[in-house]
């Protein structure tokens, strides 16, 4: 039951090697930097130190309570991340699979719209536009 914010890469396999011991189900999700049809070189991810850690911890606890998760893990990176690099991961563990799937989706919906990260595109020409929030991400929150 932990959340981490870091610039370093993470190893998804190593992170879940001892995750959720005793659970019947483990779900993981990992988000990568898309190439956007070859247009993108990297993303630069900014965050709000202090608030980010608190927010991730809060959302993890919310998910654990709501879905009865026996374990959860959130890792989110910041700084410059090249195309193909892992940006973040969540893992959830529970007795049965439905809670682990739902817990992971719940966490992703909250992280998308309520965790203080901002992405900027880096193209072949250098730093480009800040990525706009997507309305469907905001809408996704309402289902919870």
């Amino acid at each position: 039951m932990s959340a981490r914010v870091q610039t370093e890469p993470f190893d998804l396999g190593a992170e879940i090697a001892n995750f959720g011991a005793g659970a019947g189900a483990v779900v993981t999700f990992s988000g990568l930097v898309r190439d956007e049809g070859g247009r993108l070189v990297a993303l630069e991810i900014e965050h709000y130190p202090g608030m980010t850690e608190k927010a991730l911890d809060t959302y993890g606890r919310m998910a654990a309570e709501r879905f009865g998760l026996s374990d959860w893990l959130i890792i989110h990176r910041h700084g410059r991340l090249d195309v193909g690099a892992p940006i973040m991961m969540v893992a959830t563990a529970s007795r049965h699979r439905a809670a682990a799937f739902q817990g992971a989706e719940f966490l992703m919906d909250w992280l998308k719209s309520r965790a203080p990260f901002w992405k900027r595109e880096i193209t072949l020409d250098g730093p480009g536009e800040w990525v706009d929030a997507v309305e469907t991400d905001e809408d996704a929150l309402s289902r919870w």
Partner: peptide
Amino acid sequence: IAFFPPMTGG
């Protein structure tokens, strides 16, 4: 007090 654009995490 912090001001920022809509968040784009995940």
